[in-house]
């Protein structure tokens, strides 16, 4: 187990996340892609913290901040989905053409 191995795993997670975020049609699946990317970031942060920073507490704090970002992204994202669905019964990105203007 080396830092390079950990980072490659996190790169794989980020790659899959990007694929999901770009390819999925529905909002909620798209958010799964985002979460998966953040998952990879989280792993990379802790990998660096563990192998490269000698356990400096800021590394852990950064991981917590990443998790907070995830929570905020999810909460606001779903709230938007609810609001949009209530107004137009839409749950796919393509149905939101009127937002383009």
């Amino acid at each position: 187990m080396t830092l390079a191995a950990v980072l490659i795993v996190s790169a794989a997670l980020i790659g899959i996340g990007i694929y999901g975020a770009l390819s999925q049609q529905s909002f909620v699946m798209l958010m799964m892609g985002l979460e998966l990317m953040l998952n990879g970031v989280l792993l990379a942060v802790i990998g660096f913290w563990s192998f490269g920073l000698g356990g400096a507490p800021e590394g852990q704090l950064l991981a917590i901040v990443v998790m907070a970002v995830m929570a905020v992204e999810m909460a606001i994202g779903f709230a938007l989905v609810v609001a949009v669905y209530r107004k137009r019964q839409a749950d796919m990105t393509e149905s939101l053409t009127t937002l383009r203007r």
Binding site: I64, M67, A68, A71, V72, M74, A75, F78, V82
Partner: peptide, 17 residues
């Protein structure tokens, strides 16, 4: 209770701290 769950995931972050 969807509004509650959304508030919940934001509030629950405080546990991490």
């Amino acid at each position: 209770y969807y509004s509650m769950t959304l508030l919940f995931i934001a509030f629950e972050m405080e546990m991490m701290f």
